[in-house]
Design a protein around this nucleic acid. Structure first.
Ligand SMILES: [Mn+2]
Ligand SMILES: [Mn+2]
Ligand SMILES: [Zn+2]
Ligand SMILES: [Zn+2]
Lengths: 161, 161
DNA sequence: AATTTAATCGTAATGATTATCATTTAAGAC
DNA sequence: GTCTTAAATGATAATCATTACGATTAAATT
């Protein structure tokens, strides 16, 4: 979604186009290929506008999220946000070092068959975490990634419940 | 994994079998069909042992997680833990109301083909969130679930990046 | 039983997020 | 362009989950 239609859409929903809001959206729009933290956003904008408050950033992020403009993901111990690179439903490869995302050509939902009796599906989450080519050189894999990597086992003997 | 082999395994890794540790593991083993929060765990155990500290619970949860005994997931604004219902790699349907999980007979990884050049895969996350049959009667769907449900779109026009 | 040191407790600190409320300002009416 | 009003903001404090610290307790080993 481009800048102008983004603002139009916000206005149609009754939100005001404030200076802060536009700055926040502009920065998000300049970073649609990666997840950023609220802290990153604040630190970036405070360079130009030292009085920008945390509260304003959080309020705007949540407004945008609740209106469906923002995706949220949590990894490496922090909640991260981004405006989707495109409105189409899709999933990502996520670099846990830089937060950069790569669009994936696969959604697992059509292949899922064993939905439990009476279970109402609301949403799903599919992300593949790793280290991107750029981050391979130089940076180390963070500790948390090693320890939380699930052990991959192939045989299946679980009594469903 | 049963209680005794669990304790054996901890001992082999050099951990002591303290009273607190056993109580924590026992409660987790009694709840392998759902995710619980640290708070739930503490509140349950403090009924019998009022001096149990947060620090002990968090330390134990992280020890268990780092040794690969515990799964972690975050939804509805809280981090949750559980001992896997079975050692086999698998994914879940998760009820966002009660935290109860249902084993899924599908892992999307084999179908993923477009891993970006140079990207090292470390882990993946696939969860289907919803409301279980039991929770359908009586409870409401939490606000956050409505607002964060991604819009499902079927056509694909995203310029990969 | 004595020794060793991991584990625990109580408490304080941290870090992210949320709440309050006085003040500012965008948007629409005149 | 000025006026009106309610949304948005900023400064500050509060809350919540999680982590850190140092003194004490208690598993495990001898
Ligand atoms: Mn999907
Ligand atoms: Mn899998
Ligand atoms: Zn990267
Ligand atoms: Zn449920």
């Amino acid at each position: 979604m481009q800048r102008e239609e983004f603002f139009e859409s916000l206005k149609r929903k009754g939100y005001r186009l404030t200076g802060r809001r536009k700055e926040i959206v502009d920065f998000l729009l300049s970073q649609t290929d990666r997840y950023i933290t609220a802290k990153e956003l604040i630190e970036h904008l405070q360079k130009r506008h030292p009085t920008l408050s945390f509260e304003t950033v959080y309020r705007n992020l949540h407004t945008l999220r609740d209106e469906g403009f923002i995706e949220e993901s949590r990894f490496a111990g922090e909640t991260r946000f981004r405006i989707p690179c495109c409105p189409t439903h899709h999933h990502h490869f996520v670099c846990i070092s830089c937060g950069r995302t790569y669009v994936m050509d696969h959604c697992p939902m059509p292949a899922v068959e064993d939905i439990p009796e009476g279970f109402t599906v609301l949403q799903h989450r599919f992300e593949i975490f790793g280290i991107c080519a750029g981050c391979r050189q130089g940076r180390e894999i963070p500790d948390w990634a090693e320890s939380r990597t699930p052990t991959e086992v192939t045989s299946s003997t679980c009594p469903k419940h």
